[in-house]
Every structure is written in C-alpha cells, then in structure tokens.
Simulated assay, not measured.
Amino acid sequence: MKIQGKTAFIAGATSGLGLGAARHFAERGANVVLVGRRRELAEKLAAELGDNALGLGADITDPEQVTAAIQATVDRFGAIDINLNTAGYIAAVGLTTADGTPTDLAEFSRMVTTNVVGTFNVMSQAAAAMLNNEPDDDGERGVIINTSSAAAHDGTVGMVGYSATKAALVGMTLPAAREFAGRGIRVNTIVAGGFDTPIFDGFTDDAAIAQQVQHFAGPRRLGRPEEFAAFAAHLVENGYFNASNPRLDAGYRIPLQF
C-alpha cells in the first residue's frame, strides 16, 4: 500500500514512537490522525504537522471515545487506511512483592486494560472502518500495525505483568490476519526493543540504560523513534508482510536482571 494520500490513524501519537511515526508518515504525504489522552497536546502537534493532520483526544480503553475518533477521522479524510497502535503503559509488576506478599492487582489490571483491551478496541473499530474501503489494485483495504516489546519473549524479573500484555499482542497477530484473509486487511506487530521514548521515564535511570545497551548486538544505543517509524512505513508499503511479529531491537535480549 502506498503511503502518500492514505490516512493513518495513530493511537499513542502524542509522544515517543507514535509521534515519530506521525511525523514520518506526514512527511511521506499521508493524512495523519494523532490520537492521545491529552486532546490539547494532540491538537497542538497536529497543527505543527500541517493541514493534513488532525489531533484528537481519546482514551483508547473507552469504546465510545474511540468510535467518536474514528468517525471524526472518516468525516475529515474520508477513510482510514492505516492503523498504528503505540499507546502503552509499563510498571514493575511481579507475582509477589519484596516482602513475599501477593501483588496488588491494580497495576496489572491497568496494564491489561491499556495495552491489551485498549489496543483491541482500536484495532476492532479501525478494521470495521477499513472494510468499507474500496480495495486498491492489489486488493488491499487497510493495514494494522501493533507495537509489542522484547519483553514479550524474554521478560525479566519484575516484568510478569508487562510481558503478559505484550505477549498478548503477539498472540493476536496471526488470528487477526487470518480473520481478514481475502478481505484486504493485513495485520503485523512490531516487537520493539529499547527505544529512546518517554515510556521509561521514572521506570529506569540513565545508569541502568547504559548497562542494558551492552546487551545489544549492535548498534549499542537506544533506538530512535524515526527508525521505528521507517520500519512501520515499510510494513505498510510491503504488501507481502502479513501475520508477522518482526523484532526491531538491535539484537537485544533482556538479561535476568534489568
């Protein structure tokens, strides 16, 4: 699918990987919809990208808010061709606390609700909108891309909750792609490694990050949002990429202790 002239609905677009993708897709000539909890920030960032960008405030876990955002997108641009989901939440959640008591479910529930339920909600509604599109010359109606984490495969101590939610996204990819087989919607999930985004602010410090990059095969640095964006764009443009969970992590494997 060509990016130019298409409409990309990006959840989690007000920072990090989502914002990097929004900028990249806009530069490539796409209509870009930046969706985030903070409406004023989404509108401000969209204004910076130009007339072909729209900023919308929405909680991805709220079906009615996502429905409104989908409708606003279709009203403005006529269709949704690309759905990129980068919104997520991380916290250190193990099965027990440091003193051996059971973990409070609140943080785990929040991660499941945001990372899994929220992503499913946007995928479901975006796919329904894509099915209304006329297929292009290759029979494509739309492309959905989710964002998982290396923690889905090799999570470490304190990542039981986060790893579970990111593994769930990997597990959704194949059945979602099969659901739309023959109907022109491809589904892929990027398994991202260590990227320089605000999601880790307050979760780890610079010294810990410097130690972790030594576990990268190379380059030994955090990934840049524009590198993620370029790969997401490739997944859109390469029509043979489907039902896949490619890693984008510089060969990173999370060690026993983070």
Results as ranks from 00 to 15, higher is better:
T165C: 02
L84W: 13
R141G: 06
D75A: 15
E43P: 15
N83M: 10
D62Y: 01
H234T: 14
P219N: 00
I185K: 06
L45E: 13
T173E: 08
I10S: 00
G100R: 01
G218I: 03
G155W: 07
F9R: 01
A229F: 12
A30S: 14
T204M: 14
F258P: 02
N115V: 13
L41H: 08
G118V: 02
R220F: 04
V93L: 06
R253S: 04
M111S: 05
M172F: 15
N52W: 01
A69Y: 13
G139T: 11
R141H: 02
L235G: 09
T86K: 02
P175Y: 12
I199G: 07
T101V: 00
A167F: 14
D75C: 07
H215N: 09
M130V: 11
R220M: 13
G94S: 10
S148P: 11
D59R: 06
T197E: 05
R247V: 11
Y89G: 00
G171M: 10
T165D: 04
F203P: 00
P63A: 04
A168Q: 05
G55D: 02
R110H: 14
D136S: 08
H153A: 07
A176E: 12
A13R: 01
F25P: 12
A208S: 11
I254E: 00
V122A: 05
T189L: 03
Y89T: 10
P102E: 07
